[in-house]
Design a protein around this nucleic acid. Structure first.
Lengths: 117, 117
DNA sequence: GCCAAACTACGACGAGCGTCGTACGATAGA
DNA sequence: TCTATCGTACGACGCTCGTCGTAGTTTGGC
């Protein structure tokens, strides 16, 4: 048990480094879009283990990394868990209203297709 | 020279078949985002040859097909040319405000990075 | 009928993605 | 200290993507 960010300093892009193409690509995967949607609903930060995706843990880790490296989410260790949160402020500053519309569109589509919930 | 849609009936997804993931993926490529941006500025439908992209014609054709098959654009032959137009109505009906935000975000980013125009 | 222009089809190639499994590292609690 | 939990690293596999080049098809005009 060392200091807070002991084990591993996770690399996040700064706000300036976030690219629209990267964000769109990150959101264009069904699994990742699902993750982001669940994350948007919950106001608190969620551990990776909270999400029960139909893929293995390795794959889940991969998706979280893509989301973090594209600037969509923020990750931080807390004990054995890793907390995840949307970078709403940064995203809204760079791309006003975009995330909100994507989330809205995803909800509408889920409704329309009867998939997900 | 046969009837109007002689040579080739271009396959377009119906409104119901358009998927958010597909649209986001289509927009996540720099070339395609560029195409869509130019298309959004011009109100009229544009021929493929209008766009001067830093890739070959084969590649351009490929990108236009991706855009069409994902439901982002509409294509129709007119003589030797092929006219392209955004499917704004369908997209707005399915994903209200989404395209507008993406275009806005792309413009902001281009401004921010000093790229493009 | 012939040619130029616009776009397509097809095959190829290298790169990247999404997925998995196994082995590993770090933390918390008993 | 031992162990269970949470997440990572690494390599692998198949598939898709973005790109190109060449050859071909359709259309319009001369």
């Amino acid at each position: 048990m060392n200091t807070a960010t002991s084990t591993r300093d996770l690399a996040h892009p700064t706000r300036d480094e976030i690219r629209l193409e990267g964000v769109l690509h990150a959101l264009s995967d069904p699994m990742r879009l699902l993750i982001v949607r669940e994350m948007a609903v919950a106001e608190t930060e969620l551990a990776c283990s909270y999400f029960t995706l139909p893929v293995t843990k390795s794959t889940t880790t991969h998706h979280f990394r893509v989301l973090r490296e594209s600037g969509v989410i923020r990750q931080a260790y807390r004990g054995t868990a890793k907390l995840n949160g949307l970078r709403r402020e940064d995203l809204d500053a760079l791309f006003p209203g975009l995330i909100e519309r994507v989330l809205e569109a995803a909800a509408l589509e889920a409704d329309r297709l009867g998939t997900d919930g």
